[in-house]
Nucleic acid binder design. Structure first.
Length: 260
DNA sequence: CGCTATTTTCCTGTTT
DNA sequence: GAAACAGGAAAATAGC
């Protein structure tokens, strides 16, 4: 058979994610330097847009912060553009993660860990979720149907977490789907009303799930086994013939637009 | 401490 | 061939 449209997403993180990284053991105090990842083998100026996103994901991983807390759409650019962003640009685009990201990219631009002087450069990003992303006034963004909401308005003064994600796997998946602004192309609805969805970055989702469970060795292989157990419980329905595609079943609640 | 529900891990085989 | 899909089996984990 002719190979179906194997999207460009296919060259996802397969290589890097598979690696059993060292950040598993401790939330270490990393000063921006990680290990050897592809990031360190190529100049950020030449990154593709996809690589920019991978970099984002990896920096977030380093600090054990849910990557979906920063709006990836604000980094819809290639490496060249990324490198031309200023410190302020990073702050505008990534809120409290701005300084950290800026520091990371600066190091990478210079070819390795080094000192960067930008005021109070706190390497440990303090998780300030109260107002993750200040308004971004992008004048030339009319045709973008993404309206970026600052997310759950944090009604109470209490520091409400970026997003309460269900404790169970299916809830975790559901919640990623339900917050597209914070879903950097990980999973996508195939049929919103029918509850059919597809993994775009299966390994990335597995990593995210693993981080939630504090298990750095999670893989899609294992995650999918858990997904298959849901068939019997009718939390998921089989969608055969279609790889990486699942469908919510009668016992999965809270995913419908109406009951949202 | 048991007990249950949910994964997680591993594996062998099949399908795409 | 490389990924996914399929489940069985058993261990691990989290909450009562």
């Amino acid at each position: 058979m002719s190979t179906p449209l194997t999207t460009m997403l296919e060259n996802q993180l397969t290589t890097t994610w598979g690696i059993t990284n060292s950040y598993s053991d401790a939330p270490m105090l990393m000063s921006g330097y990680t290990g050897r990842l592809w990031l360190y083998d190529s100049h950020p100026q030449f990154w593709s847009k996809h690589q920019v996103w991978e970099w984002l994901q990896q920096v977030m991983d380093m600090y054990q912060i849910d990557a979906s807390t920063i709006p990836f759409q604000h980094f819809d650019m290639d490496g060249h553009q990324l490198c031309s962003l200023t410190y302020q640009d990073f702050n505008r685009a990534a809120g409290s993660m701005g300084p950290t990201l800026f520091h990371s990219i600066t190091e990478l631009k210079l070819g390795g860990p080094c000192h960067v002087e930008i005021g109070q450069q706190d390497l440990k990003p303090e998780l300030d979720f109260s107002c993750p992303y200040p308004n971004i006034s992008s004048a030339s963004e009319e045709n973008c149907d993404y309206v970026i909401h600052p997310l759950p308005p944090a009604a109470s003064p209490a520091p409400s977490r970026p997003g309460p994600r269900g404790t169970h796997l299916w809830e975790f998946i559901r919640d990623i789907l339900l917050t597209p602004e914070r879903n950097p192309g990980l999973i996508k609805w195939e049929d919103r009303t029918a509850g059919v969805f597809r993994f775009l970055k299966s390994e990335a989702v597995a990593q995210l799930w693993g981080r939630k469970k504090n298990n750095s060795s999670m893989t899609y292989e294992k995650l999918s086994r858990a997904m298959r157990y849901y068939y019997k419980r009718e939390i998921l329905e089989r969608v055969d013939g279609r790889r990486l595609v699942y469908k919510f079943g009668r016992n999965a609640k809270g995913w419908k637009e109406s009951e949202k």
